[in-house]
Design a protein around this nucleic acid. Structure first.
Lengths: 151, 151
DNA sequence: TCTTTTAATTATAATAATTATAAAATAGTA
DNA sequence: TACTATTTTATAATTATTATAATTAAAAGA
């Protein structure tokens, strides 16, 4: 954890941004809840638990900044709120998501499944891929099993 | 065009919804601007040109309805507005997008490039894929060429 | 056809997410 | 320590979207 904070501090300094206590608190929340997909409001409430004096606008600004520096990725699952997801250490691309349309759970896939597809896009469309967003919508394992039991 | 209107009318009737003049006007705009990615506001302004008495809320409601019936897909490219995209005739899946980070242009890919990937997700994660969202961010052909010329 | 019921629209207000602003506080540096 | 540029706070403003109540239009039944 401390190692990643240090790393992020360096990334900020490299662009002459400071790691203020508010920013650090925000990053810590993101690290602690790495497997979640928190909205700005969620992050705000969690940061507030430890640093009650922080303002919502600061959280928004920090998330925006981290987003620009590609430290977090901003995603939208179509529910009207932006969610913020820490990029895995050293990951070149954003990871993928499996969103269950039954229970709403979100699972992550770290593997890069798109290498072939990106090659095709590059060759056949002449589009230079820098990043991607891939989300599958469907039924998760748990819900499939519950459905079987219910019958 | 008339053929697709008829088709959509049937889809609505199948769920006992009506194709009201407002809904028809909205669908016509979507058909006329099929290659675009219009926001609700965009659609509203275009519909208003021909049917000035329509209200914004009606457009929202219509788009929501079409979205539920999978006639249009609601997408979000991260700029804070939802965009609505007609699903290709008979298409099972949503098509993909290439978003240029230089000029903001959005290109569509109709081909289904994800068959293999979906099989992997299905087998290795036990996730039953119903639909997907795939967007690539990068540099489009035009911007690549402009960049070369500029040097 | 006339009436009744239901669905859809309008006009507006309300909400919810996000961004902007000006004053105050803070961090890094001379 | 003092200076200068950033950053934060507190709040207001904006923007997108949704809800509400009254009205209108459409379909169904007599």
């Amino acid at each position: 954890m401390e190692h990643r904070i240090e790393q992020i501090k360096k990334q900020l300094h490299a662009q002459s941004y400071k790691l203020t206590p508010q920013r650090e608190a925000t990053v810590r929340v993101l690290l602690e809840r790495e497997e979640d997909h928190l909205s700005a409001e969620d992050v705000y409430l969690l940061v507030k638990e430890k640093s009650p004096e922080i303002g919502l606008a600061t959280v928004y600004r920090t998330l925006e900044l981290l987003s620009e520096l590609k430290i977090v990725d901003k995603i939208n699952f179509g529910d009207g709120v932006s969610r913020y997801d820490l990029r895995k250490e050293g990951a070149k691309h954003f990871h993928h998501h499996l969103v269950c349309i039954e229970c709403g759970s979100v699972e992550e896939i770290v593997n890069d499944l798109l290498e072939d597809v990106e090659r095709i896009v590059q060759n056949d469309w002449g589009f230079e891929v820098k990043d991607h967003r891939l989300t599958f919508h469907g039924i998760c394992k748990q819900c499939q099993q519950s459905a079987v039991k219910a019958n």
